[in-house]
Computed example of a mutant assay.
Amino acid sequence: MGKPKFLITGATGDTGRNATHKLLEQGFDVRALVHKEDERSARLSAAGAEIVVGDLLDLDQIRSALDGVAAAYFVFPIQPGLIEATVYFAQAAKEAGVSAVVNMSQISARRESRSHAARDHWIAERVFDWSGVPVTHLRPTFFAEWLLYPGNRNTIVERGVIEMPLGDGRHAPIAAEDQARLIAKILTKPEPHAGKTYSLHGPIEMNQAGIAAAVSEMLGRKITYQPITIPQYRKRLERAGRPAFLTQHLCEVALDYQNGMFSGEDEVIAEVTGRAPMSVHEFVRQHQEAFKSNDAVA
């Protein structure tokens, strides 16, 4: 019997790219599903991944991508279409005899969520559960990569502030690289994790002032937290041209954050992978160059 093959969707995104590399480093075959071929997919191909161009909203393309796959990672961007994509993916996975799916959800996913995206994630979890395909749901808190997203990174670089409507809420930022280690581990040994839902956190819970202090320490210059209101945040997102669906989600989860929904510290990654996730200090140290230029970060 040959080596198992794994499908990674969103393979040029933060978690998908890192999960692809983790699996390739372990000697597994990886089929990387991308929306288009570009320099990012070229780097994955050079690393050894099989590149497949496809659309998660096309049932036939997804069925073809899952052919011969042992297990798969499913992630969908914050935009309309998640439920349809989940139904197609679950059906295609069942037809293909896929033994496990790792589903990227979010920590605010719940029936009563006022965020349309978070509620859709809750329904998508239920769709996978109903399908009968063995599934593990991942519900991460805010990614450490939030510090690198242009809106946040640019205020740090240009004004020395983290400007968010998060009050004194707390969370333990979790890096995509650490999530990817868990994703790869579950895909290669899925049985103990089937049917489980894991909340994902970094190692140290902090408020935004604490995060700003950690960034200050690593960059060697003063960074402060400047709270803004959710209406101010909405206007900022609208001025930046963010889609209405994403803006509605971000504003609603900001309130969830203020109410403590994103809090917690790692109880899964260190135990399952044998290595604790990186702290904010470690993350900023790893990405120091990104905070030295006014060039936008993708």
Rank of each mutant, 00 (worst) to 15 (best):
G10V: 12
D14K: 14
N18V: 00
T20A: 15
K22A: 15
L23T: 07
G27Y: 03
G27M: 13
V34K: 02
E37G: 01
L44P: 11
L56R: 10
L59R: 02
I62E: 01
S64R: 10
V69F: 04
A70Q: 14
A71D: 00
V75Q: 10
Y88W: 02
Q91E: 14
A93S: 14
A96P: 05
G97P: 06
V98G: 02
S99F: 02
M104C: 05
S105P: 04
S108E: 00
A109I: 08
A124V: 06
E125W: 05
V127T: 03
W130M: 06
G132V: 11
L138G: 11
P140Y: 08
T141R: 03
T141M: 07
T141V: 06
F143S: 00
L147K: 15
L148H: 08
L148G: 05
P150C: 05
I156D: 07
V157D: 07
V157W: 10
R159W: 03
D168E: 15
H171Q: 06
A172E: 13
I174H: 12
L182N: 04
L187H: 03
T188W: 02
K189D: 15
E191F: 14
P192F: 09
A194I: 11
G195E: 13
G195Y: 09
T197C: 11
P203F: 10
I204V: 15
M206L: 15
Q208W: 15
Q208E: 09
A212C: 08
K222M: 01
E238W: 01
R239G: 01
P243A: 05
H249S: 08
H249P: 06
E252Q: 14
V253M: 14
A254N: 09
Q258E: 10
E267H: 11
E267C: 04
E271D: 10
V272G: 03
M278C: 12
S279L: 08
S279Q: 08
H281T: 12
Q286E: 06
Q286H: 04
K292A: 13
